[in-house]
Amino acid sequence: MTMTSPASTRHERIATRRTVLMCRPEFYTVSYRINPWMHPEDPTDTSLALTQWQTLHDLYASLGYRIELIDPLPGLPDMVYAANGGFTLDGMAYGARFQYPERGPEGPAYMDWFREHGFEVAEPVSVNEGEGDFLLVGDAILAGTGFRSDAGSHDELRRIFGREVVTLRLVNPSFYHLDTALSVLDPDPEHPGIAYLPSAFDRASLEILEERYPDSVLVGDDDAAVLGLNSFSDGRNVVIASRAAGFEASLRERGYVPHGIDLSELLLGGGGVKCCTLELRW
């Protein structure tokens, strides 16, 4: 069940055109296990993953988004999860430095793309997995730690971008990236909107979220378990997992327009809508 907070309000939602980076899952498979979702003993269907990914791509196009593509590389099956490739803001790209060696080469590949497309690149010192753990809400960057990104990367964010960085600690290994446990519905500083799974955070982090965003959508275990929170919003349209029925109902109640999509094959690797989507901010 997904619940709205007692202070929930509804006002006109305005879509803002987004620019995103995506990567076709041409080499997608689950050949190793680095998160609880992955089971390499079970078969995966690359063709189905491509079809589902294309549906997401085409939906973004229909919403008027500008879509950039990075070429997939052989031997990097998780490169489809573009959100982990870095974090961009104000024409600067902070590169990723992956915790697991299986994904290590993705960091340089994405940094090369950023350089070639006009970003000033800040190479990371600390382990971090890009927008998987860094989400912009208003003028603040919400930054996850606990499983993948080191807290030291939060200090790097502060130095590089000069923005407030709010550290949030994740405690449930099934929600190992911030973008699996928290969704930015509206980054507008005047009316910031988020949704999150309370059980994914420690008590101190919950207190921060409750204080900063008292009007949040609180998502229950059933919707979170299909990576319903791994969604992407333009302030009005919210692309979510089609099975996250409770979350969808809460979004409609708040005046958002949800778009359900089936990425079940990519879920086998531990990723959903947001994992496949890196927002570009020149």
Rank of each mutant, 00 (worst) to 15 (best):
Pro192Val: 00
His191Tyr: 15
Leu185Tyr: 03
Ala225Arg: 10
Pro187Leu: 11
Pro192Asn: 10
Glu210Leu: 10
Leu197Ala: 04
Arg212Ile: 10
Val219Arg: 01
Leu229Cys: 00
Pro198Thr: 00
Ser199Ile: 08
Ala200Ser: 09
Ala224Leu: 08
Tyr196Met: 04
Pro192Ala: 11
Asp186Asn: 13
Asp186Gln: 12
Leu229Phe: 01
Leu206Phe: 07
Leu218Val: 05
Leu206Gly: 06
Ala204Tyr: 02
Arg212Trp: 12
Pro198Ala: 00
Tyr213Gln: 07
Tyr196Leu: 10
Ala195Tyr: 06
Pro214Tyr: 15
Glu211Ile: 08
Asp221Val: 14
Ala195Asn: 05
Pro192Thr: 07
Asp188Ser: 13
Val226Gly: 01
Glu211Ala: 15
Ala204His: 13
Ser199Glu: 11
Arg212Ala: 12
Ser216Pro: 08
His191Glu: 14
Asp222Arg: 07
Glu210Lys: 15
Gly220Asn: 01
Asp188His: 13
Tyr213Met: 12
Asp202Tyr: 01
Gly220Phe: 00
Gly193Phe: 08
Asp222Gln: 12
Asp188Lys: 14
Ala225Asn: 14
Asp223Pro: 01
Asp202Arg: 06
Pro214Thr: 13
Ala225Asp: 12
Ser205Ala: 09
Ser199Arg: 07
Glu207Leu: 15
Ser216Met: 07
Ala204Trp: 07
Asp223Thr: 06
Ile208Thr: 15
Asp202Phe: 05
Ala195Val: 07
Asp223Asn: 03
Asp223Val: 01
Leu206Met: 10
Leu185Ile: 02
Arg203Cys: 03
Glu190Cys: 14
Pro189Arg: 13
Ile194Arg: 00
Ser216Leu: 00
Asp221Ile: 12
Ser216Trp: 05
Leu197Ile: 08
Pro189Gly: 12
Ser205Cys: 08
Leu209Ala: 06
Glu210His: 12
Asp188Cys: 10
Gly193Trp: 02
Val226Ser: 01
Leu229Asp: 05
Ala224Pro: 10
Leu227Met: 09
Ile208Gln: 15
Ile194Trp: 11
Leu229Arg: 08
Val226Arg: 01
Val217Arg: 08
His191Asp: 15
Asp222Val: 14
Pro198Ile: 02
Leu218Gln: 02
Leu227Ala: 00
Leu227Gly: 07
Leu227Thr: 09
Pro187Gln: 11
Leu229Ser: 07
Asp222His: 13
